[in-house]
């Protein structure tokens, strides 16, 4: 998993889940706290944990398993991105919250997954956005939140399941949230219900002003472009278990197989190797 730190003025918080090359060496120490028992792991651990980027991911098995980032400091402009693997869950759970310190019902950003849909909402607006997602697929969820007295907004982007076309999630605008601030973010099975299945996360990134870029899909070796090296790297993971350090899960299906190598091959043909 990537660990991104943005220490200049635009920074809000650091990312999570330190990656390490050895099995079972993943950790949650980049986060302020961990609640419950979220698992940091990798695909070849005794308890395999899917990942999107790098070698580590985070898995939440039950409501209350989540990590907390307390580095936001009364933010009124906040951009976050994370990768979410839908799994085969049932139950309507909050998988992400960006909150004030008091939390409660004042949730500037709330993302729920009910097993079928992702549901986005923001304090100060009765409007929600609901988009259907496919089981057992990775999605990049990007959120841009602004506070304002009747001018606040939440811009949402959901892209995944092997496609580069954003799902239809219009922004929520005209929000009355001028006094709202974000002081912490929670990622995992934060609240709600989870009757079966697990939730998996990777590559969290949050910033004050700039918007995190989506990671290069199929870029197994993290070179910034797609070539046969990415196909062979994915294949090498499938055959030899050597985990790729980039984004080898080309079809975003949760496991790396020869199909991901073929996916890289198709991107080379269709885009000439440019990241999709």
């Amino acid at each position: 998993m990537n660990s991104k730190k943005f220490l200049m003025g635009a920074a809000v918080s650091a990312a999570l889940l330190l990656a390490a090359p050895m099995a079972s060496a993943c950790a949650l120490t980049a986060w302020s706290t961990a609640n419950g028992t979220p698992i940091a792991g990798q695909p070849n651990d005794a308890t395999p944990v899917a990942r999107y980027s790098g070698v580590c991911g985070m898995q939440a098995d039950a409501i209350g398993d989540f990590v907390v980032d307390e580095t936001p400091a009364g933010e009124q402009s906040f951009n976050a991105q994370f990768y979410y693997y839908t799994g085969d869950r049932a139950g309507n759970a909050d998988v992400y919250q960006a909150r004030s310190a008091s939390g409660g019902t004042n949730l500037p950003i709330r993302v729920q997954h009910d097993g079928t849909n992702l549901i986005f909402s923001t304090n100060g607006s009765a409007t929600t956005r609901t988009v259907a997602v496919t089981d057992n697929r990775w999605y990049a969820i990007s959120l841009q939140w602004l506070a304002g007295a009747g001018t606040g907004s939440l811009t949402i982007s959901v892209i995944g399941a092997g496609s580069d076309t954003p799902l239809n999630t219009p922004a929520i605008t005209g929000v009355s949230n001028g006094s709202d601030t974000i002081e912490e973010a929670r990622l995992g099975l934060v609240a709600g219900t989870n009757t079966s299945g697990v939730a998996t996360f990777d590559a969290y990134d949050s910033r004050r002003t700039t918007v995190p870029a989506r990671l290069c899909r199929c870029d197994s070796n993290n070179s910034g472009s797609i070539s046969v090296a990415d196909a062979v790297q994915a294949l090498n993971e499938f055959i030899n278990g050597t985990l790729a350090t980039g984004q080898p899960d080309c079809n975003e299906g949760g496991t790396v197989t020869v199909a991901d190598g073929v996916g890289a091959l198709n991107i080379f043909i269709n885009n000439g190797g440019v990241c999709p």
Partner: peptide, 21 residues
Amino acid sequence: FTGRCAFKDSEVRVIAFSEQN
């Protein structure tokens, strides 16, 4: 080996790899 070859945008793009490494 599996591979693809296509003529697109005035380019012939060729890529192939061994599925068995």
